[in-house]
Amino acid sequence: MYAAERHQAIADLVTKRNRVSVTELAAHFDVTTETVRRDLSTLERLKLVRRVHGGAVSIGSLTVLEAKLPERGQTHAEEKDAIARAALELLPAEGGTLVLDAGTTTVRLAELLPTDRRWTVLTNAVPIAALLAPATHVELQLLPGRVRTTTQAAVGHATVEALGHFRADLTFVGTNGLTVSHGFSTPDTEEAATKRAMVAAAQRVVALADSSKIGQERTVRFARVDEVDVLVTDSRIDAADQQQLEAAGLEIARVG
């Protein structure tokens, strides 16, 4: 089957079923998951499907669709564990002030924070706050705002305003999508505003994202590629994507 024929067949299947996973499509068409992801990127640019975590939905589905936090935590779990461990290497040797964005990979990083150094941690994530509140090696600053049930993250004007009063050594931020042309992006406007404030609040910014996010574009950009210093991702990142991102000035740390 030629690529164009496969694209049409995938679009028809997604329309018929409303949602189809990458693994289902790979098995159905007897191609690799990497090929399917490229196909879905092409179809999304043509506005024939909408990409979501692990697959695609029909273009007639909800315009903003996010997986809830427990579901997201189970997706690419091994890659996220490895990314969190690799992020430890970027921590200041003497301790310092960190901003931890909400997300399943940043939760993993919070669990691994070294106990032999003192940390001031600013976060909008309820799970991270609950995890670090009892820690004797952490001074916790829980950011104010409205908590979204989908991401368990505080967002809104109060969150953004609070971040404007701080200057951190390092921000660890998550993303739902990353391309050279659109930058780092997320589906929700308030989440994007909060992430944008987190990027502005730190001397150095590190994005934590498994390779499934790369090559995808979500509705709202919160940072250009040149506004983030390092991307920590897994070894499945497409070579062409890595080359384009590095050419745009982004340092990439691959793990696994």
Rank of each mutant, 00 (worst) to 15 (best):
H7L: 15
A9M: 13
L13D: 09
V14P: 05
V14H: 06
T15F: 10
T15Y: 04
T15K: 12
T15H: 13
N18M: 00
R19M: 09
S21V: 00
A26T: 03
H28F: 15
H28N: 05
D30L: 03
T32C: 02
T33W: 03
R38G: 01
R38D: 14
D39P: 00
R45Y: 00
L46E: 15
R51G: 07
G55Y: 09
A56V: 03
A56D: 11
V57L: 01
I59K: 11
L62M: 06
L62R: 13
L65Q: 08
E66G: 02
E66D: 11
E71R: 05
E71D: 12
E71K: 05
G73C: 13
E78H: 15
E78D: 15
E79K: 08
E79T: 03
K80H: 12
A82M: 10
A84Y: 10
A87Q: 08
L91G: 07
L91V: 10
P92Q: 06
E94D: 15
E94I: 00
L98Q: 02
L98F: 05
L100M: 14
D101W: 11
T104N: 11
V107M: 05
R108F: 05
L109R: 06
L109G: 06
L112G: 06
L113G: 01
L113S: 03
P114D: 03
P114L: 06
D116A: 11
D116K: 05
R118P: 01
L122A: 13
T123S: 13
T123L: 10
N124L: 01
A125T: 04
V126E: 13
V126L: 15
V126S: 02
L131P: 10
A133H: 14
A135Q: 15
V138W: 07
V138M: 06
L142G: 05
P144N: 01
R146D: 12
V147Y: 11
T149W: 08
T150D: 12
Q152S: 14
H157K: 11
H157M: 00
E161S: 10
L163C: 09
F166P: 00
A168N: 07
F172D: 02
N176H: 14
G177T: 07
G177C: 03
G183C: 03
G183R: 04
G183E: 02
S185C: 07
D188L: 08
E191R: 07
E191I: 05
E191A: 13
A193G: 00
A193W: 04
V199F: 01
V199A: 01
A200K: 04
Q203E: 15
K213C: 03
K213L: 09
I214D: 05
Q216V: 14
T219K: 09
T219P: 00
R221P: 10
R221H: 07
R221V: 00
F222R: 04
A223N: 08
R224T: 14
V225T: 14
V225G: 08
V225N: 09
E227D: 13
V230L: 08
L231R: 04
T233M: 07
T233A: 10
I237T: 14
I237E: 06
A240N: 03
D241T: 00
Q243T: 15
E246T: 15
G249P: 09
E251N: 12
E251I: 08
R254G: 01
V255D: 09
V255E: 07
G256L: 06
G256S: 10
